[in-house]
Write a protein that binds this DNA or RNA. Sequence first.
DNA 1: TGTCAGGTCCTCA
DNA 2: TGAGGACCTGAC
Length: 291
Amino acid sequence: MKLEEIKNGIILKETKDFDPVHIFECGQCFRWIKEDDGSYTGVAKGKVINVKKDGENIVIDNTNKEEFENIWYDYFDLGRDYTSLKKELAQHDENLKKAVDFGWGIRILQQDSWEMLISFIISSNNRIPMIQRAINNISEKYGKEIGEYRGRKYFAFPSPEELSKASIEELRECKTGFRDKYIYHTNKMVIEENLNMEDFIEMDSEVCHKELMKFKGVGAKVADCIALFGMRKYDSFPVDVWVKRVMQEFYGAEDMSLPKMRKYGMELFGEKAGFAQQYLFYYVRELEIGK
DNA sequence: TGTCAGGTCCTCA
DNA sequence: TGAGGACCTGAC
C-alpha cells in the first residue's frame, strides 16, 4: 500500500478491498455519518476523521501519517489480506460467492470493546437510526468534546467512569428506551468488578461469549456482535433476523432454533464465520432477500 | 390505530 | 430446556 501525505490528511493509493459505503453501511458501526459529497465522517479512538473514495484511492481527511500508522491502520484492519480471504470464502459455496462479490469492499473494523458493549445493548430490537441517535446523545452528554469538523461538534464515547454518572432516568432521556436499565447495570458491573473490556480480546472465543452474556441486556446475538466487532473474535456468528433469513433461504435451516443456527453457522464457516456473516448480512439486507 | 424493527428478560410449564 | 409475552420509540 502506498501512502501519500497531503494537507491535513493522507491518501492511500490503489487500495483494493476497501469501500467506505460497504464498510460503514454493513451494520458494524453506528458513529459514521454520510456527508452530502458521499464521504463519511466519524468518531473513533477519540478522533474525528473523514473518509472518501476517489477512484482507486482512499482519502482520509483530518489526520496525518503518524496518526494513520498508530491508529487507523489497525482500525481499518489494513494488515489483513482481504483478497485471499474473499477468495477462500467464495470457494465455499455459490451464495457466499455472490455475497462476497456484492460487498467486495467490506472490512471488519477493530472498534473499541467497551463502546461495542454498550452500543450493541442499545441495538437490541431497535432500528439503526434510533441506535445512532441514542449513542450520539450519550456521547454528547457524557463524553469529552473532541473538536469541530465541517462546522459540527464531535464527542468521544464516554468511558465507564464518565458514563457511570448517568442514572437510569438520564439514560432513558438519551432515548435508549427499555435498555436504560441494561446499560446502567452493565456499567455498574464494569465499575464494581473493575473490568477492563480490552482484557476480553485475549480470551478464548467461547469463554469471551460466555462472559459477555453475564451482562444485563446481552444475549447470544449481542454477545456475538460485541465479540466480533470489538474483540476480534472472527469465528463469531451473530444470528439476527437477516442472518436467520439467509440460513433459511440458502442453507436449509428452515426449522432450526436460533442457538442451533448459530452453532450451524460456526460449523459451516469455521474460523472465518464472522467474515462470512458480514458479507451475507450486507447482501441480504441490501437486496432484502427473504423478507 | 396497529405493526414492526439488527433481541433480551422473565415467567411458567 | 423452550415457548410466549412484554418492552421504549417512532416511522409507515
